[in-house]
Amino acid sequence: MEERSKVFVGLDVHKDRISIGSAELGREAGRVVGGIAHDVPKLSKQLDKLGGPARVHVVYEAGPTGYGLQRALAAKGYECEVIAPSKMPRRPGDRIKTDRRDCVQLAECSRAGQLSAVWIPDPHDEAIRDLARAREDAIKTRQQQRQQLKAFLLRHDRRYSGKTAWSKTYYRWLGELNFAEVAAQTAFTEYWQAVQAGDERVQRLSQALRDAVVGWRFESVVAALQALRGIDVVNAVGLVAEIGDFSRFEHPRKLMAYLGLVPSEYSSGDKTVRGSITKTGNAHARRLLTQAAWNYRFKPRIGERAQQRQQKLDEAIRTLGWKAQLRLTRRFAALVGRGVQINKVCVAVARELTGFIWAVALRATPQPNART
């Protein structure tokens, strides 16, 4: 393709409509091509008028419509990238936002090379990621159902005398409860059945995740990550499904930044100010990491289940997992001893855990792709 003939096209994509803007090489301002219904054949006709696959480079922001449009355009031969919205250049004084302005800005920024494309999973990887997120949604729903049941019991002054809620003993206690009023008993039964249904749903999705990993191209990575404390097969699948190919990160710090686990910073001159973590990037993976980091508050040990998971792993990976456990448990205890707030401790440990995850994943990847 001759560079002088290239046309950069920006799409502002919504559920029902797509706004199209274009910018050609040079310094001339981009222009609005028009707006069409969200329909791939109609969009293809518009792109053909601008030069077709040989000339057109298409970009649009990641959003709720997913990657279907990108895959459809790629199948027709178009070079199409999905852009990270959080990394779009913004003018501080710009207070006007419309679809027409957005599509032109995308085209102009693409021409200037100012955009960052997101990683696009293949359909099978995305399907496993959807399954992992469905389980995460099921856990959130179950938590709400449990809270509703406990609120009902509190209103009726039914108090559990044991120490741990939602244990086998707690479930037996719930099964023995009775209420004098028929309406109250009916309400309790509905709450109780909803909790049981939520438990069954989480179990089904957890088993589906375990089954889905068999034969997956990242199966070896999922197995290797279980050498790290706090990461079982379900969490490992979730992390790999969200992050994808670890070899695309040249250094663990880039993975930490991708997950939003690095501190924000505002520095000027000789003054350096660091704040809370950026929380950019993938929130699902970040949540899994902070949950795993909480397990490092205990003393180092390898339990029976962990030993079973690690039996078939290489010695180098098992050694790295033990090294991570020794370092992170010591780090957790040191930060707590300094009086650091516990949530900050978990985030700090999660950030270091990310580095070990990166190292383990690279060792376990059968054929790492070229790093970008």
Rank of each mutant, 00 (worst) to 15 (best):
V360R: 03
H124A: 12
V221Y: 07
T164H: 14
A151N: 11
L73N: 00
F152V: 04
C80H: 01
L225G: 07
A212E: 10
V32N: 04
T319K: 10
G30T: 07
L25E: 15
Q341V: 14
K87G: 01
E108V: 08
D245S: 10
A37Q: 09
L289F: 15
Q307I: 01
R248G: 04
G230Y: 11
E136W: 06
G355E: 08
A350E: 05
A183M: 12
L43F: 08
A74F: 00
S22H: 06
W192P: 00
L153G: 05
G162W: 09
E126A: 15
E28T: 09
G63F: 00
G303E: 03
K150G: 00
K168M: 09
H284W: 11
E24Y: 04
H156I: 00
W216F: 13
P92K: 12
L73T: 01
R297I: 12
T98G: 12
A208K: 10
Q325Y: 01
A112N: 13
V182P: 01
G339P: 02
A151K: 07
V214M: 05
R210N: 10
I277C: 08
T189H: 10
A227C: 15
M256C: 14
A194H: 11
P368A: 00
V7G: 04
R318H: 03
P53G: 04
V340A: 02
Q145A: 14
W358R: 09
E265K: 12
V214S: 10
F246P: 00
R135L: 12
K254P: 00
A224Y: 01
C80P: 02
N282W: 03
D125K: 00
I83W: 03
L50K: 07
E250M: 06
V336E: 15
H284N: 14
D94Y: 05
G281A: 10
G66F: 00
A350N: 05
W294N: 05
R287T: 13
G355W: 06
